[in-house]
């Protein structure tokens, strides 16, 4: 019987799965529009546009919930970087690259105070506080192009905004793949997924 700690309160679990569904919808419809081809339609273009727009607006609201949740609850402290971040990142990366295969113990075991290892923390901060805000901001600008700073960037404003939006969307897609894979590294391959459903993390 493994030891369990309660790590994920209900609001985080609800937000997480809700956010996951939105991101999947946005990624698939985004790819479908960016690589639209009359011969090989992934999703009908007009459906993609509608789904992408609606999911995008809901993502903005979801992000506000995430931000307020972390601002108003102690969960926000999980995103503070500790001293010696570079050294810690290297240690964690070395563990994933070599230590894990030698049966070493994780260098940063998960506790109630430190839910994330340095690599998780770094990637979550990058995605949630850099990538998602950028993708949201550029998305709003594309949805309401009259707000584009045309006076500053001229006719290229729409073009530059789209490129940033697409690059950020691609980073989120890559993050999602890596995130799902690393979730299989737990007590059992499915235990981390279960943890995000029942709130309890099984100690590895």
């Amino acid at each position: 019987m493994s030891e369990k700690i309660y790590l994920y309160p209900v609001w985080i679990r609800l937000w997480h799965w809700f956010n996951a569904i939105l991101c999947l919808l946005l990624i698939f419809t985004g790819i479908s529009m960016q690589y639209s081809d009359p011969a090989l339609p992934l999703i009908r273009f007009d459906w993609s546009v509608s789904i992408h727009n609606i999911a995008g607006i809901i993502l903005v609201l979801s992000y506000i919930c995430f931000f307020l949740g972390n601002f108003l609850t102690p969960n926000g402290r999980q995103y503070f970087l500790r001293k010696g971040i570079v050294k810690n990142l290297i240690m964690q990366a070395r563990y994933y690259a070599f230590g894990i295969f030698k049966g070493e113990n994780p260098p940063f075991p998960i506790t109630k105070e430190h839910k994330f290892n340095p690599l998780q923390k770094f990637s979550y901060i990058f995605v949630m506080y850099v990538t998602i805000p950028l993708v949201v901001l550029t998305g709003i600008m594309i949805l309401y192009p009259e707000f584009l700073v045309i006076d500053f960037f001229g006719n290229k404003a729409l073009h530059i905004t789209h490129i940033i939006h697409v690059i950020m969307g691609f980073i989120v897609s890559l993050f999602l793949i890596v995130h799902i894979y690393f979730c299989t590294i737990g007590h059992t391959p499915l235990s981390n997924f279960k943890g995000m459903i029942n709130g309890y993390h099984e100690i590895h």
Binding site: Y35, S36, N155, H162, L174
Partner: peptide, 27 residues
Amino acid sequence: LEESYVIGANRNYYLNVISIGLFVLVF
């Protein structure tokens, strides 16, 4: 691109190659 950006019609070859390359490497 001089006047607009048409989703689906304006793709960047280099960005496509880099993104597919990164995706394949990660996978």
